[in-house]
Structure formats: structure tokens, C-alpha cells
Design a protein around this nucleic acid. Sequence first.
RNA 1: GCCUCAAUAGCUCAGACGGUUAGAGCGACGGACUGUUAAUCCGCAGGUCGUAGGUUCGAUUCCUACUUGAGGCGCCA
Length: 469
Amino acid sequence: MKHTQTLSVKELLNGALAVDTPVELNGWVKSRRDSKAGISFISLGDGSCFDGIQIVAENKLSNYETEILRLTKDCSINIKGKIVPSLGAGQKFEIVASSIEVIGWVENPDTYPVSPKRHTVEHLREVAHLRPRTNLIAAATRIRNTASFAVHEYLQNNGFYWIHTPLITGADAEGAGELFQVTNFDLNQLPRDAAGKIDYKKDFFGRETFLTVSGQLNAEAYCMSLSKVYTFGPTFRAENSNTTRHLAEFWMIEPEIAFADLMDNASLAQNLLKHVFKAVLNKNPDDMAFFAEYINKDVVTRLTQLVNQDFEMITYTEAIDKLLKSNKTFENQVSWGIDLASEHERWICEELVGRPTIVTNYPKDIKAFYMRQNDDGKTVAAMDILAPGVGEIIGGAQREERYDVLVKRIKEMNVSEETLYWYLDLRRFGTAKHAGFGVGLERLVSYITGVQNVRDIIPFPRTSKSANF
RNA sequence: GCCUCAAUAGCUCAGACGGUUAGAGCGACGGACUGUUAAUCCGCAGGUCGUAGGUUCGAUUCCUACUUGAGGCGCCA
């Protein structure tokens, strides 16, 4: 039976144990400072929170000369000692060690890729298995966790059911981007039919299949029974996108609400985002302070303001009007009917509005087949939420619930009616107006933290020509 | 997919009309000092200048191709 408790750094720093209580803890050395007076200070981290706890190691420890003085960043150690009020500034509590056991040394600290200095994110991506040991990636990871949990929390508290939609899909016609094909064919010996075409009847699923680009269509089926549903999982796009805001594999949150229109949709999106912002501000103040100090000084103030402020709403037509009157020259010419280019979106949310902006009612010709046609015959009930610095973090719409209108759109836009028969069935049997949207988790966390590249928000980024680790 | 830029020490970067021994900061290592906090100060080691060709008496420097990385655009979340 152990006499001591093993606690996390977070618990200890929060004062979970009374002074003088014996304690045991495990973690990794963040830094070590020696005094020739015969005392070393080890900052120990275990990832439970941003800060490390200070370990005081005196030279009377049996392995002081042989081991303690050789500790470098990220050596793993076990400490037994007791918690005491700190004599130094900077922390309330510290641990006086009665024993320190080295669990794992760091080989060749001179070439260790995450040495105790600032590194570029580009370098850290090349050592993605070691980068969680940096303050930057650890903080982003904790915030990603808070944001994810807060999404579930908000939706669950508001009557939504989490639907586990499939990752493998036969629907290749969602128009949301290029797909990764899923097959167990031997690619060197593809079975052919009489016409010489690849015979997918012989493939695992007996048809062509792909990784999903969105759970939306499947979620809509469940929405037409459970009323308020959402998906939250990985999504795949085989676009050869080379930007700071695209990944081939990313996580998306897609709520879908029945008997709801575009305004209900926008309101849900806004409340969901505000809840997530609030949760991060409450649960990760230390991590956010780090981003404010090293990445973008505005990240905390802007989130704080947003929590208490409604997002700006503007129609596409109004946006075009403002762009035309802006007296600014854009690379891409502005006229009603164009798809907004990045420079236009940036101008709208960064310069015109200065905070996240909901743009609604886009021309139907630049949007997906399932979006509900407005009475003007020219626009659809779509919405994008644009965030300064990141661009589109949410895309959504009220869905076309009228069978005839939907069929007409499918034909006009050359979408495969055959593979979508089941989707059309939803309009034939008890259809109802409904709406939903997709939030890119990485873009959301990128906006929250100010970290510019989504490759640094997801643990192991997958992009074109890059799937290491 | 298109365009642009980059590749020199473990990391971040300088550098040279093409010409002996290629520099700095950080990190590592050694020392001084200190209840220290990204400590401070002193010192030491560390390089096939991305790969393959070409031009040249001579290329890390110029040219070409390739590889890798980054950024912008498009597509979107």
C-alpha cells in the first residue's frame, strides 16, 4: 500500500494537497537551473496544464552529482517528496524532493529536435511525434480538447443527438470536393468487365466507394426523425489545396435541425461558437495567455468581446454593394453573381466589420444543389461565417425540402439522381424544412489561438504529398 | 492544379566579383555566480553549404533538373 498520492501537476498547483503532505509525481523536465550552493531547480511538466511545477533538488540526494546535474529537457522522472510553500517568486507551491528517479534519459541532447529554445512551426511539423512536447503544440492541443468538448456540451444541453455517420460512402456527388477512393482491389490487377472498364461489382462493397467529404446528407436522414442532430468526426478531401487553412483529413461538426430556417441556423451557429469561446476562456486561461504573448496579442480580448456581442449579419447582395462602394481595388472584379474571393471575404470581416460576420443568401449558381431556393428565384438560403485571419469557418444553409424543386436542381447541376434516391426519399415521406451547417474544427481553433496554419492545430496533419507519422 | 520564394552548424539566420582557415545568435557541453523562473556572465565543440548534372583552371556562390519545405490564388471547413 502506498502512503503517498500520485497527483498531476495541475492538481498540485491548484492546491489539492496541504503543505507538508508527502507526494509522488511523474513528468518531464522542462528546464533545470543549478546553484553551486548545492541546490537545483527543476521545472517539471506533465501536460496537465500550461505551467510546470518547481522541484527543489538538494545535493544531499544520492544521485545528485551522477544524475540530477545531467538532466536535460524532456528526461522523464519520478519524484517523491513533499509539497511546501515556495520561497521563490512565480509560484505558490513547490516540491522538495526526497528522491528523484530517472525513468528515461534524452539521448544526444545537442541534436534533440525540440531543444529548449523557440522553434519554427515548420521545423516542428517535421518532428510531429516530438512537437507535443513544446508549449505551443501542447497549449493548442488542450484548447482543441476544450473546444471539442464544449461543442458536445452545448449541443447535448440543447437537445441534440450525436449521430455517427459513416466514413465510407457511396455518394460521390455532394459537390464538396474531390474524394479519396476506398477499395481493396489489387491495384496491379484490376478486374475488368466486358467493355474493359473496371468492374466495381467485384470490389469489396460491390460498388465504388469513397471516404466521406461530409456527414450532412446522412445526418439529414436522422434529422427527419430525431429533429436535432449533429455529426462530429473526421472528414476527407482529396483536393490538392496548398494553403494554411486546408487539410486532406480534418474534423468537422455538422448540426442539422428540423423545422428550422436560415435564421434559426445562424442563431444556433452563433450560440455554439460563443459557448466554445466562453469555455476556452474559462478553462484555458494560461494557454490563451501564452498565445496572446507569443502568437497574437489580440486573441484573448477579441474572444472576450465576442462572447458579449452579436455577430454581424449581412446579405450577399449587401456585401457586394459594400465591396463596390469600398473604393478599394481588388484583384478579382466585384459584381453581383461572383463567388466571393478570399480578398473580398477578408475585407468584409476584417475591415468592414472587424469581427466574425455571417453572410447570407448567396446566388444559387455558386452554391450546392441541396440549398433552399429563395422566392426571388436568384438566391439560396445559404450562410457562411467569416472570421478575421482565417476566412470561412462555417458554411451552411437551409436545405431544399421541396421534392420537385430539389429534383429540378439535381438535374440542372448534373448531380447523380441515382445514388441520391434515398436523399430524395426524405422529401417524399414527411418532408420538413430544415437547416444545418458545418464547422471546421481546425479553423475554429486556429481562430481561437491565432495559430495561422491548421497543420499546427491537428496532431498529425495530412496534406497533399504529406502523410508521415 | 497554377504562381512565387527558400534550402549554409541540432535550431534560426548572415555571407562571398566564383578564389586559402564559411560567421552570429539560440541550444548542447565545460566553468563562474545566484532561491533560480526563457536566469546572468565567461569559454569550448560543432559544417560534404539539399541531391545530381553543367559552365569554369577553380562552384557552397552562376546555370539546369530533381527533391523537400513555405507562402499566395483557386476549391472549401
